[in-house]
Each structure stands twice: as C-alpha cells, then as structure tokens.
Amino acid sequence: MASPSLELQGVIVARLKAWAGLSASVNGRVYDSVPKEDLRIAQTGAGWPYISVGEGDETSDDADCIDGFEISLDIDVWSRAVGFPEAKRISDEIRKALKSPDLTLPTNALVDFRHRQTRFLRDPDGLTSHAVMTFEGFAEQP
C-alpha cells in the first residue's frame, strides 16, 4: 500500500511539469531534490526560477472502517528576478494548477485538497525571492 502523501507528491510534480502556465517560466524545473549548487559561480544547478517540494506531514485521522490521513505540503518557488513579481506569478499558476478537482491518486482516494496560504520572503542572500505555498488535503486508503 502506497503512502498517500507520497502518491500526492508524485501527482503534484507531474501536474506542475505539464502545466502550460508554468512551461515558459520554469520549463519543467520542478524538484524534490534540487541539483547541487556550483560554488564557482554561486549558481544553483537547477537554473532560475524553479519549484521545489518542501516540508510536509501526514497525520492519521482514522474512523470506523476508514484509514484517513490529513496531509500538509509546502511547495517552494525560487526566483532571482528583481523583487517579487516573478515569484508571485509562478505561485499563482501553481495555485491554479493544483486547484483543479481532477487530481487523482493511483491507489488512494484524495477526498479534499486546497491551497491554504502563500508567504513571500526575501532570502538572506539579498538576491533570491522565495514563495512558500502551503496546501492541505485529506486522503483515504482503500
């Protein structure tokens, strides 16, 4: 039996890589593990901008005859463009891509999935804009 949060992550990554509204800006740069930085040029191996799967958790919420899981997942947007406009445009496209009701897990049932909040941050390097998007859902195992 597959973990609901693992299945959800796979579906999300596939959706974001295929989403037309993200193709011009991130060009498929959606990562669980971001390619290593080249310290000689102080540049991430990912290229800019990019999306990464961030922190998450899966909490059991069982009921009679139902193995349920509350899932929380962060998706991060990373940009080196001036200011926040690029990070805000990309995060809006992510929200649109993931609010679609047709997110289907291979073996588990995704009952609910929604965007909770987006925080925009300036990273300490003074160059990087960062959006942290939090999504929440509920899944049931068969």
Rank of each mutant, 00 (worst) to 15 (best):
81 A>V: 02
104 T>L: 14
101 P>V: 10
100 S>I: 09
84 F>N: 03
93 E>G: 03
108 N>G: 13
70 E>L: 15
108 N>W: 09
64 D>V: 15
69 F>D: 11
68 G>L: 04
85 P>H: 03
99 K>C: 05
74 D>P: 11
68 G>P: 01
109 A>H: 15
92 D>L: 11
101 P>F: 11
69 F>E: 07
99 K>M: 12
77 V>K: 08
78 W>P: 04
109 A>W: 14
95 R>Q: 13
77 V>I: 04
106 P>L: 02
106 P>Y: 00
64 D>F: 14
108 N>C: 15
69 F>K: 09
102 D>V: 04
91 S>R: 01
96 K>Y: 03
92 D>I: 04
109 A>Q: 15
100 S>E: 09
67 D>Y: 14
80 R>S: 03
75 I>W: 00
78 W>C: 06
99 K>L: 06
83 G>C: 08
63 A>C: 02
108 N>H: 14
109 A>S: 14
64 D>W: 12
80 R>H: 10
72 S>L: 13
114 R>H: 10
99 K>A: 11
76 D>Q: 12
75 I>A: 00
92 D>F: 11
95 R>L: 06
113 F>I: 00
98 L>R: 10
66 I>Q: 11
83 G>V: 04
84 F>D: 05
102 D>Q: 06
73 L>M: 14
102 D>S: 10
104 T>G: 10
114 R>M: 03
89 R>Q: 09
73 L>N: 09
79 S>P: 05
113 F>Y: 05
75 I>D: 00
110 L>Y: 03
64 D>G: 07
107 T>M: 08
108 N>L: 12
97 A>R: 06
87 A>K: 00
69 F>I: 05
101 P>H: 07
104 T>M: 13
101 P>Y: 10
62 D>I: 09
101 P>M: 11
107 T>C: 04
100 S>A: 09
73 L>P: 04
65 C>H: 12
80 R>F: 07
111 V>C: 01
99 K>H: 09
77 V>M: 03
96 K>R: 07
65 C>L: 12
114 R>C: 04
100 S>F: 05
65 C>W: 11
113 F>K: 05
69 F>A: 12
96 K>W: 03
94 I>K: 01
114 R>W: 10
61 D>L: 10
75 I>E: 00
104 T>Q: 15
101 P>D: 12
99 K>S: 13
94 I>C: 03
62 D>R: 13
92 D>P: 00
113 F>V: 01
68 G>Y: 04
